[in-house]
Design a protein around this nucleic acid. Structure first.
Length: 587
DNA sequence: GCTTTTATAAACACGG
DNA sequence: TCCGTGTTTATAAAAG
């Protein structure tokens, strides 16, 4: 069996301000470095050294051959004081590497084994490094290019933390694209070329994505031809395939490490369900700061204690803004120890509750963490999640307890709050059907209560804020909806925005507010509160707005306006509304 | 400092 | 009477 070999070039370069000139002072002698081992380790540079060099903003080139038959290791462990000396060293190293590569190519490249040399590199190699390996294997990159790249600041950021790993932009763009550039490659956005070219994982952006190959192909046919000619089943392709397997394996290892880290973090943050909690004190995302002062307080057993009494801040897994804000960290505790939770953070930042919950569903189910949403948001979400978008009070209770560990205790407190919110907010409409009293959501009222800070058409936003306030949806609002959100949704493939499926999809997309608004635009273009009780044929309104016309008609919900319209048919505005609403809604 | 929003607590009414 | 449900009021705090 032929010797399986490859040459690995790891470049840690920096686009630093210090440049190589700083190198000498930082590395000269090297005796002061912790863990420094490049002085007596037989020419090897350990990952620790690499990391250290990188952290020290040092430009260093390490060329390590991973072949099983030779032990060529080219490392700049003896970096001189002078920049020139360092550059010379680099050149020598590159020449050595190039020569070695030539030898390898003469031997005939064969597949790589996941041998120990390779595995030993895994600590220092990120997947991008493995991709870089392709360049060396395929001989695409010359040493001059590498040297040039090094001094132009492009190269691998050798960090032990994969999250901070950056990949070379220039010469590995193509090869990395298919695997590592998930942001580019996994997003639905694809250039027109790719869209028209069909879907071949090895073809995109008009070029071959075979690792190490950047051959330009005008169309799919040309690509197929190129694929068959250049990447046929031979030793070289096999070797590349095996390296690709290594890449995947490396990614899996990294994933396992990150998962383990995550688990440790969650464990550290008291998320061990199996671990007995002495007092089962919840963690409050919003007002955790006040808890720091009272974390030593103990509430007597059997006595209700404030649900806001958390012991430590904890955040769910998310990337959005639902994090503990500085203000929340410094919130004051309630003088009676009952610190009411102020505005939920996610509400404050207009975080879509659906996406937040979808993202951290298990988190909230298991962690005694107060969800960063207002009661109103939660209630609304619970109702909208229901198949028919209506829930009894008890079902709302059950949803709270099912979805949030936080609400599995202090039931009297939060249930009272739920009832209070249901009664207080006009967006919650109590209706009676055959099942009894159920609660629904008047989306118009909800949006009016909290104007959505959505990104989109300014016209839409404007109309959402101002146009909603006349008891009916004016034309501009409808037009804005149709122009912006509905178009957006249609572009997302949501043909029927009024369907529950669309709702769920929208929630999943994280357009909580947008979705709920757009839902109101039905297929015939008219706007109706989808969730208003008129939908429910057998339902009778129990919760009514005051019979007298409010001074501010904007406070009237659409549903309530309909109700009033029935009672006060002579009202002009209500007549206008009557014209706009489907007749069946008045029945 | 004012207003709005929200959370919390509590009182009360009503019906089963 | 008790309990669940629903409404209302009061208070405090945060945020704009």
């Amino acid at each position: 069996m032929m010797v399986e070999s490859a040459s690995e070039t790891i470049r840690t370069t920096t686009s630093n301000q210090n440049g190589v000139s700083n190198l000498s002072s930082q590395l000269d002698g090297g005796g002061g470095r912790e863990g420094g081992s490049n002085g007596d380790n037989n020419g090897e540079i350990s990952p620790v050294d690499l990391l250290h060099l990188q952290q020290q903003q040092v430009c260093v080139c390490v060329c390590v051959c991973v072949c099983t038959s030779c032990s060529v290791v080219c490392a700049c462990q003896q970096i001189g004081n002078k920049q020139l000396a360092f550059q010379q060293q680099l050149i020598q190293m590159q020449q050595l590497q190039q020569q070695h590569m030539i030898n390898l190519q003469r031997q005939g490249l064969v597949s790589l084994q996941p041998t120990n040399p390779m595995q030993s590199l895994q600590q220092a190699m990120c997947p991008g490094d493995l991709q870089q390996l392709w360049k060396e294997v395929s001989g695409v990159q010359s040493a001059e290019e590498a040297l040039k790249q090094q001094h132009t600041g492009e190269g691998l950021d050798l960090s032990t933390n994969s999250t901070s790993t950056s990949f070379p932009k220039a010469n590995t763009h193509s090869s990395l694209h298919s695997l590592h550039n998930g942001q580019d490659n996994h997003t639905p956005k694809r250039d027109s070329h790719e869209e028209h070219a069909g879907s071949h994982p090895l073809y995109g952006h008009g070029e071959c994505k075979w690792p190490g190959c950047e051959a330009l192909c005008d169309d799919m046919g040309q690509f197929i031809k190129h694929l068959n000619n250049e990447h046929a089943l031979d030793d070289r392709s096999t070797a590349q395939c095996r390296v690709q397997m290594q890449v995947v394996q490396q990614l899996e290892i990294q994933l396992a490490k990150e998962s383990e880290r995550l688990q440790a973090m969650m464990t550290h943050l008291h998320m061990r369900p199996s671990e007995p909690k002495p007092f089962n004190q919840p963690l409050n995302l919003a007002s955790s700061g006040s808890l720091l002062k009272r974390e030593s307080e103990v509430y007597p057993e059997g006595l209700p204690h404030p649900p806001t009494s958390a012991t430590a801040p904890i955040t769910p897994l998310r990337q959005g803004p639902s994090v503990i804000s500085s203000s929340s960290l410094h919130s004051h505790s309630h003088p009676h120890g009952v610190g009411p939770i102020r505005r939920r953070i996610a509400d404050k930042f207009c975080t879509p509750i659906a996406s937040e919950l979808a993202q951290n569903c298990e988190f909230y189910k298991n962690a005694d963490v107060r969800p960063p949403f207002t009661y109103a948001s939660l209630i609304r979400h619970a109702i909208l999640e229901a198949p028919d978008r209506q829930l009894t009070l008890n079902e709302i209770y059950n949803w709270f307890t099912r979805m949030f560990a936080y609400f599995r205790r202090n039931t009297a407190t939060w249930k009272n709050a739920v009832r209070h919110n249901l009664s207080l907010h006009k967006c919650f409409v109590r209706v009676e059907n055959v099942k009894g009293a159920v609660w629904t959501v008047d989306e118009v009222e909800y949006q009016k209560r909290r104007p959505p800070k959505m990104t989109g058409s300014p016209t839409l936003v404007k109309n959402m804020i101002s146009g909603l306030g006349f008891g009916s949806l004016n034309a501009s609002y409808q037009a804005a909806l149709a122009e912006s959100s509905l178009t957006l949704l249609n572009s997302q493939g949501l043909v029927n925005p009024s369907s529950a499926a669309s709702l769920n999809m929208l929630h999943g997309m994280g357009h909580d507010d947008v979705s709920s608004t757009v839902e109101q635009v039905n297929s015939n273009g008219s706007c109706s509160p989808t969730l208003s009780p008129q939908q429910y044929g057998h339902q009778v309104h129990v919760k009514e707005e005051p019979t007298e016309i409010e001074e501010d008609s904007r406070s009237m919900s659409l549903m309530a306006t309909v109700t009033q319209n029935m009672a006060l048919p002579s009202d002009r505005d209500d007549r206008d509304l009557d014209d706009e609403l489907p007749t069946e809604e008045l029945e």
